[in-house]
């Protein structure tokens, strides 16, 4: 049983590529065979986040134009052999690929992998339409910001009209302190508005930038940061495991606050 999952958002820069890279790696570490498809044509980034950019020779466009075989275009991760990448071409020609071709491509891939994760471009235009074309389920990434949630709602509507009904949500870049001071919507607020199933919450974490710079997904760290652990948990949930949500607030609490709590706790 293989799964074709598109990671999408509507709004740009909310963490689709970061989520695709980390979930792909985390699922591969759980023993699943995973292929990541970069559907962000012209603005490819997934190879960079995975540190595989120097090994990309062919792209999905070469496969579709029959300039290479599918397995020639797949870049296998040397750190984690269960993980492969199909890179996007750097061409800006948006009509270079059609939804029909994309559907065929992910279909073929699904015969060889447990998971086909498609990293969608921002927006709701052709690139997005192609990215969702062959998908059977979707992960929506949003931040707790009004504009990101609005776009997520729009995308959920579009997915539903494409008969993709299995839609789960990742709330990214949450800042518990801001939620506490009522300056940021809480996860519950976002869920109330979007009413889709919550897959996980990723805190705002500077380690994300460090990991991007290194080309090493967070989940590869020996002691993963909070965001890395959150991604591991999401991978587990995708696998059907019942994993409680991390208490991001607890972990973010300052040393003094924890000390205070310890001192004032009833013995």
């Amino acid at each position: 049983m293989s799964r074709i999952v598109v990671v999408t958002s509507g709004k740009g820069g909310v963490g689709k590529t970061t989520s695709t890279a980390n979930l792909g790696m985390a699922l591969a570490r759980l023993g699943r065979k995973v292929v990541l498809v970069d559907a962000d044509f012209g603005l490819r980034n997934l190879d960079l986040l995975l540190g595989l950019e120097s090994r990309v020779v062919y792209t999905s466009l070469d496969v579709l134009n029959r300039e290479c075989k599918l397995d020639q275009a797949l870049v296998k991760d040397k750190r984690q052999p269960n993980l492969s990448l199909l890179a996007a071409p750097q061409t800006r020609n948006k009509t270079a690929i059609t939804a029909v071709a994309m559907t065929k491509l992910v279909e073929v891939l699904s015969h060889h992998f447990h998971y086909v994760l498609v990293d969608s471009p921002a927006g709701i235009e052709t690139g997005f339409q192609n990215a969702i074309a062959g998908a059977k389920e979707a992960i929506i990434v949003t931040t707790p910001e009004i504009s990101a949630v609005r776009d997520a709602d729009r995308v959920i509507g579009l997915l539903e009209s494409h008969r993709i009904r299995d839609i789960k949500l990742i709330v990214n870049r949450l800042r518990p302190a801001m939620v506490k001071s009522n300056d940021m919507m809480s996860v519950e607020d976002v869920l109330e508005i979007l009413s889709v199933k919550l897959l996980g919450v990723i805190p705002d974490d500077e380690q994300v930038i460090v990991s991007t710079n290194r080309g090493e997904p967070l989940v590869l760290a020996e002691k993963p940061s909070l965001a890395g652990r959150a991604y591991q948990n999401i991978a587990g949930r995708l696998e059907g495991q019942d994993i409680p949500f991390l208490d991001l607030d607890e972990a973010n609490r300052s040393f003094l606050a924890r000390l205070w709590k310890t001192l004032t706790a009833k013995r």
């Binding site: 009004i146 949630v149 609005r150 939620v179 001071s181 009522n182 300056d183 940021m184 919507m185 809480s186 607020d189 109330e192 508005i193």
Partner: peptide
């Protein structure tokens, strides 16, 4: 600032 979060929600 009890309302500020609710206000965002209302706008949304």
């Amino acid at each position: 600032k009890l309302e500020s979060r609710d206000r965002v929600k209302q706008r949304l």
